[in-house]
Design a protein around this nucleic acid. Structure first.
Length: 425
RNA sequence: GUGAUUGUAGCUCAGCUGGUUAGAGCGCCAGGUUGUGGCCCUGGAGGUCGGGGGUUCGAGUCCCCUCAUUCACCCCA
């Protein structure tokens, strides 16, 4: 047992797995480019107040899940970012105090930190891919953002995802609905569970997405949030749905969908996968027009965005066998030494081949030829190049194709050409 | 924060109601082939049985504590 192990809720990613990340990130880069989104990177920490103001101090994230610390005794508290949206908005407002041009399209792949108990699909350090469209939040903009997210899933080959959408209306709509919901739930008070009762006073909307079957039954008959939304909000939501239908994006309106972060308003959405276990949300997002003012901006910057959990994406893809094609490939050539006295010769040859663009590996542990061949095989090298007394003396080296077991005797200069030919087949 | 679960070799795990030197498969190393891999055969290295305490003539096995893991709740990606 090792003395040290990774910090609880964190994870090491070794080369076998990193190829998956590279693959997914590649798809993300190409799809976001199709929609005109560019990458943004912001610091991993921000002043704590940014999240308190942005996400909302009553949310669980801010209330009990932040990694906060004082960089120096009299300094301001700093927090490892638990989400990206507040930081992106802060960066934007800092660079464009006047709001900039109407549509800024930004995406990110970033590490986030939340002090929760780890479980399947949940870590304390995790990664989200997300996008923020700043300056416009029209129905077309909302549809565009959802569309981009779905295209990423589609390009990765994911099947069976469910897109759920709902409208949270504006602040007035929600206030009116809150009263209605309380009035409806009042008679059921004695049947609600502990957490629901707590939410009854603090944030009754959250009772809607309870996992407790007993609560779900009660909630099923509750008035619908959508019915409380006044005509403009309703029309806007209908236009979003119209755009989605137009683009053949399957969705279902989920009246119980309420997002956990304070800054969301109007359209909110979520994508779930049945491959994920209890934590089944692959991604989610919505409109957050109110955030810019909340953070002290001079002007309101309408905005829409989403975030997708990369680790959850990988779990879902793994379950669907979508990484099968990602076979690692070994070096083109593995240099095999007859004995260690030829080491400097071998190094010279490796160097020459590498400068000719050939990937080369060799045994660095001074082992037997048999062990070297096994190593070449394990690494899945294409060829073995034998370096022995005869080769060094004659200048002609034995090159063995490890797939076909054919061997040739070649001069060093001829080798890159032969490898180039064989890689074309 | 709450509940449950698991913790034996590098990895995956076995170890019956407590009983002598703790096992298997895979992996690793070496040899069979003193210039040649993948298959096969032979041998070898490698374990404070998570840690501490207790019960017992005797504990991997029972009890307590502790640490870690995993899953679920809460909440979220």
């Amino acid at each position: 047992m090792a003395q040290f192990q990774v910090v609880k809720g964190a994870k090491d990613i070794f080369p076998e797995e990193i190829v998956r990340w590279h693959y997914i990130e590649g798809v993300i880069r190409s799809v976001t480019a199709l929609y005109g989104f560019s990458e943004i990177r912001t610091p991993v920490f921000e002043y704590t107040e940014l999240f308190q103001r942005g996400i909302g101090s009553t949310t669980d994230i801010v209330g009990k899940e932040m990694f906060s610390f004082l960089p120096d005794p009299n300094g301001r508290s700093i927090t490892l970012r638990p989400e990206m949206t507040a930081g992106v908005m802060r960066a934007f407002l800092q660079k464009y105090p006047g709001g900039g041009v109407p549509a800024h399209k930004l995406y990110y792949v970033a590490d986030l930190f939340r002090k929760e108990r780890p479980q399947a699909g949940r870590q304390r350090q995790f990664t989200q891919f997300g996008a923020e469209l700043l300056g416009v939040s029209s129905p077309a903009a909302v549809a565009e953002v959802i569309s981009m997210m779905m295209q990423v899933f589609d390009s990765l080959g994911l099947q069976g995802l469910k897109l759920r959408v709902n409208s949270l209306g504006d602040l007035d709509d929600r206030a009116r609905y809150r009263d209605m919901l309380r009035a409806y739930l009042e008679p059921f008070r004695d049947k609600l569970d502990e957490p629901s009762l707590e939410r009854f006073d603090k944030n009754p909307l959250r009772i809607l997405d309870s996992k407790n079957p007993a609560v779900q039954e009660i909630v099923a008959g509750a008035p619908k949030l959508l019915d409380c939304i006044r005509s403009e909000g309703r029309a806007e939501f209908d236009r979003v749905l119209g755009y989605l239908a137009d683009r053949n994006i399957a969705y279902e309106v989920d009246h119980l969908l309420v997002r956990g972060l304070d800054y969301y308003g109007h359209t909110a959405f979520e994508v779930v996968s049945s491959e994920l276990g209890a934590q089944d949300a692959l991604g989610g997002g919505g409109r957050y027009d109110a955030l810019s003012k909340e953070l002290g901006g001079n002007v309101e910057i309408p905005a829409v965005g989403f975030a997708v959990g990369m680790e959850r994406l990988i779990i879902a893809m793994e379950k669907q066998g979508l990484f099968a094609a990602l076979t690692p490939h070994g070096p083109q050539v593995f240099v095999v030494l007859q004995d260690s006295s030829l080491e400097d010769q071998a190094l010279r040859i490796s160097d020459r081949l590498r400068h000719a663009g050939v990937s080369v590996e060799s045994d660095l542990a001074g082992r037997s030829m048999k062990a070297q061949m096994r190593e070449a095989n394990r690494l899945m090298a294409g060829f073995a190049l034998f370096v022995g007394q005869d080769e060094v003396a004659s200048g002609n080296y034995t090159l063995r194709n490890l797939k076909t077991s054919e061997q040739f005797s070649l001069s060093l200069d001829a080798i890159p050409g032969v490898l180039h030919e064989s890689s074309k087949q």
